[in-house]
Design a protein around this nucleic acid. Sequence first.
DNA 1: TTCGGAACTGCAACGTGTTTCTATTATGAC
DNA 2: GTCATAATAGAAACACGTTGCAGTTCCGAA
Lengths: 206, 206
Amino acid sequence: MRILTTTNSLTTDDLGSAAQRDRRRRILDATIALASSGGFDAVQMRAVAEQADVALGTLYRYFPSKIHLLVSALARTFEDTQTIVGRKPVPGDTPSERVIYVLRRATRGMQGDANLTEALTRAFMFADASVATEIHVVGMQLTTMLTRSIKGEAYVEGEQPSDEDVAIARVISDVWLSALVSWVTGRASAEDVADHIETAVRLVLR
Amino acid sequence: MRILTTTNSLTTDDLGSAAQRDRRRRILDATIALASSGGFDAVQMRAVAEQADVALGTLYRYFPSKIHLLVSALARTFEDTQTIVGRKPVPGDTPSERVIYVLRRATRGMQGDANLTEALTRAFMFADASVATEIHVVGMQLTTMLTRSIKGEAYVEGEQPSDEDVAIARVISDVWLSALVSWVTGRASAEDVADHIETAVRLVLR
DNA sequence: TTCGGAACTGCAACGTGTTTCTATTATGAC
DNA sequence: GTCATAATAGAAACACGTTGCAGTTCCGAA
């Protein structure tokens, strides 16, 4: 499932001693493992604490709620994916082709681990205002991934995408998230999701 | 599961004696009142039972979980709105104008009671597979409302909308729901929501 | 009217997210 | 190396969704 991340010295965002970073990593690893094995309900705070080898109070010191924990796990998952995939430009000759390619890949990836996806998606959707920060991180990741796909070769690191492109990316990510929710709750098949997204992308990018 | 019942005269959907319909109504009233006063967290099953003047076990007999309860409340809210608004054709000369009109109205309505909207929206998003039936009802209500707006005067009761129109309606309702979630979680202002929806509608309907 | 089963009440109990508290351990300044 | 402070462990307790159960009431059929 996960490639182990080296006990690296520098994380993206600083924050804490090596021991603390290690605890944080262990906690997120345990969260993802439990989510992957049994979905949202299997991510029980006592179980996460035990598997990460920290006390329950410590878990809550790092993540103030189960939802914070799962949304952070989602952010890290995206981050890891981006690190691996984000190197080479997205294949495809038109914006729709590229966006459809990327979403198809991402969707397949998530559907490959239904339990994990269920846990992360439901947490994301259930989050309330107190999780705004973590949610925002994920939102930015999504927007970046999509504007990058829209621009294709023309994309340059660090450049602000146009308002138009951001608006389009947001619409597409809304549809994608809703489709994932439908799939997670058993209201739509994998094929339904793929079709629906493709339709939406074609409607929006033309 | 019900065989015929003699007593009751007419409800929309059969189901139960007058006393049972009354209990169901009281429960949903209590749910909406509590949600309106304190949002999702304030809808506590014991409190709902007490306010509806039924035993806790009875509440669970009518609605097998808090999520079922809240999604059913959402369905009834929509239904009530439709009954009131659904008479006259939607004003506006183009599909986008009509859809924007309807969504603007609906959004304003929901934003007028932030707590209630928070409760209903979060429940809808958190629902798992066991709530599929109730969710489907709400989905149909949304689709109907939107295809009706798209067609405008051309809409005729009972006629199946085209696949194209349904696909468009689904994209728009995805965006609308996501926007509501953003608003509920404090990540977007009322104005943001209006702008985002308008952008999406213009993109999709052209 | 009487009877049998379904529906309802009241209440206790359980599971899991969350909080709280004390004792212990790690960390960093001096 | 010593000490003050922060971080952690361990465990109990609380809150609320949910379940289970014994006794009571309601309702339709005979």
